[in-house]
């Protein structure tokens, strides 16, 4: 009997990773080019910004919240960065910023700070709405998702943005010690977040709130402040990711980031972050993101049409969260 239960428990815990792992192996056998260094590198380059988004969302999930505005904030950050970092001699320059002087290289960094601060404001609103107005995070951030998309549309007038300065695209193409900047940045973010989650009171409070919000409050944890910090920080990470994705793509539009929040949530749950709160590791998030990106690439290699890929991704998202909830029910 216990053997049988163990199997069930194993499937609940690792089922989705196993299935996706098998799919990846199958793809590797059917399409030998899948496991080439080149392809793996390209997958890894996709993982970096997605990991930054997912690690931002993970804080919200651990405190029993969520952030559905993530994808749209990525888009807004990419658009604002793009409009501020076009080539001086580019013919299709963005109306509002076309008279911007041609700043030296430090401007690229300044723009990153600007978009992070702008998104931080939206994150602050998210945090205030969730903690002080007690709006369920699901609804509050869904509203923010719409708002940010609207703001992005108003700002860009839905025109695509391109013609980036070389020093901006260099952020994505350049490398240090033969390892792309994107990796370094994701690594630094990952280490910082690991430190925050494990070595600081804030991290402990975060897990405590997710484990039992009332008990945390009784223990003297400032629950509202912790939640606000989490949502602000998450928004700043989305901004960073949007900035990087823009550089990587060399252009952007309002559709950038669409749906990334769900992929991030799915990646988190695949990686062991519980939507019931209180549980989750940075390393798990990384694994979740890698698995999800491998899945996407495998589907491409298998020649599955993009339209069908959406259906599969949707199923994976629902199944991964359903399995996560099973864990919780089993615990009771």
């Amino acid at each position: 009997m216990s053997k049988k239960m163990d199997w069930k428990q194993f499937l609940i815990n690792y089922g989705i990773i196993c299935v996706l792992g098998l799919l990846v192996i199958y793809t590797g056998i059917m399409r030998p080019k899948f496991f080439t260094l080149r392809n793996l590198q390209s997958i890894a380059l996709n993982v970096a910004p997605r990991f930054i988004i997912a690690v931002g969302v993970s804080g919200c999930l651990i405190t029993k919240g969520t952030d559905l505005s993530a994808g749209r904030m990525v888009g807004l950050a990419a658009c604002i960065s793009g409009t501020l970092l076009q080539k001086a001699d580019y013919s299709g320059r963005f109306e509002l910023t076309k008279n911007l002087p041609d700043f030296p290289a430090w401007w690229v960094f300044a723009v990153l700070i600007i978009v992070m601060l702008i998104c931080a404001i939206f994150g602050l609103i998210n945090g205030l709405v969730v903690s002080y107005l007690s709006v369920p995070a699901f609804i509050g951030t869904l509203g923010m998702q719409l708002m940010v998309y609207g703001i992005c549309l108003v700002y860009t007038d839905a025109t695509p943005i391109g013609g980036y300065r070389n020093d901006y695209t260099y952020v994505a193409t350049g490398s240090f010690l033969k390892i792309p900047f994107l990796f370094w940045i994701a690594l630094v973010v990952g280490l910082l977040m690991w430190f925050l989650y494990n070595m600081t009171p804030h991290g402990k409070y975060m897990y405590a709130i997710g484990g039992n919000e009332q008990a945390a409050e009784v223990s003297g944890v400032n629950v509202k402040r912790s939640k606000i910090i989490i949502y602000v920080m998450a928004a700043m990470l989305y901004a960073l990711a949007g900035f990087l994705l823009g550089a990587k793509a060399g252009g952007t539009s309002v559709n950038m980031g669409n749906g990334y929040e769900l992929e991030a949530i799915a990646a988190c749950t695949i990686g062991g972050v519980s939507v019931n709160g209180g549980i989750g590791k940075v390393s798990g998030v990384l694994i979740g993101v890698m698995v999800f990106e491998l899945l996407k690439s495998a589907m491409q290699f298998l020649g599955l049409e993009t339209n069908y890929q959406y259906i599969v991704q949707g199923i994976v998202i629902i199944v991964s969260i359903a399995l996560d909830i099973r864990k919780y029910i089993a615990k009771k």
Binding site: N212, A215, A216, G220, V221
Partner: peptide
């Protein structure tokens, strides 16, 4: 259960949660 224990956390976390500020190093690190 409702307002006492932090069920999914360890004993160490449960003991230290309301006094974490006493164990800081350089004001940041636990």
């Amino acid at each position: 259960r409702g307002t006492g224990i932090l069920g999914c956390l360890s004993i160490a976390d449960n003991v230290s949660i309301s006094s974490l500020n006493h164990y800081l190093e350089g004001n940041v690190m636990l």
